[in-house]
Design a binder for these strands. Sequence first.
DNA 1: GTCCAGGCTTCAA
DNA 2: TTGAAGCATGGA
Length: 296
Amino acid sequence: MTSIASHPRVSGDRAALISASAEMTLHAELFDLESTMDSGQVFGFRKISAQCYEGGFGGQRTVFSQEGPVLRIRSEEPVDPAAVRRFFDLDRDLDPIHACLDADESLAGLSARFRGLRILKQDAWEATACFIISANNNVKRIQHIWRNLCQGYCGSLISFPTPEAIAASNAGVLRRMGLGYRAPYLFETAKAVAQNRASFEEIHTLDYASARGRVLEFKGVGDKVAECVLLYGFGKQEAFPVDVWIFRAIKKLYFRRRRLTPKKAREFGQKRWGASAGYVQQHLFHGARTGFFDII
DNA sequence: GTCCAGGCTTCAA
DNA sequence: TTGAAGCATGGA
């Protein structure tokens, strides 16, 4: 169910929305905008208030807000509703994922707590760049660097710089934007992608294992970043990123007093949850970070 | 001042 | 294959 209304907007609204002139609503059943946007999978959106986020979408500044099952989209030009549904993964049946979560005693209550948490389908290049930046970093700083990149290369916060734009600069520019020792990693990867775009886009067509091999060839992409890129950028649902939070959670919930390595944690998650591994991981991550689990 | 953050690369054993 | 050192930066 989709309705589109394009009309001048009278603002008794927040300053961020003043220039919005197109408004659209989507029926989004079993969707929670807040847990989706706040669960560390995307860095380019600014939280305006609870259930209200602003960021670049489809090349323009866009505000997403939610009231019950209604997702409201405000922008200057009408956006493509199909693109919104795709971005928020709204057409995925969450039943198998909830079944995985509910079947697991250790995860009791997790699906109910974050009902409607979905994994975004982000641009693959942006996801690759962002998760290279994320290495040994924190969410706040990643967001700060994201803004520096957009402002520095594009002059606005609407779009993320292309690999070509970054490849045409140098690692020093990136370093000054706050990337620190990750600057040469992103620069080298941008050059590689810019030089062979077709190869990068081809990763979409590969299965998880083959795609993983390709992604791991990029500088600054190790086991964990690769899983993030595969899950958030290439939609590979078997991906299971293991960061410090997931490691702690898996260790505490399933490997008490047993030796565990990040690789073993990943293989455990993938074997246990299969095609739902990525979604289960997202619930685990958000649960761990928000204190749902007592894992510290 | 130390510790930590959605880790990776390099090098040695 | 595994383990350890080194790496930028800013907030807690």
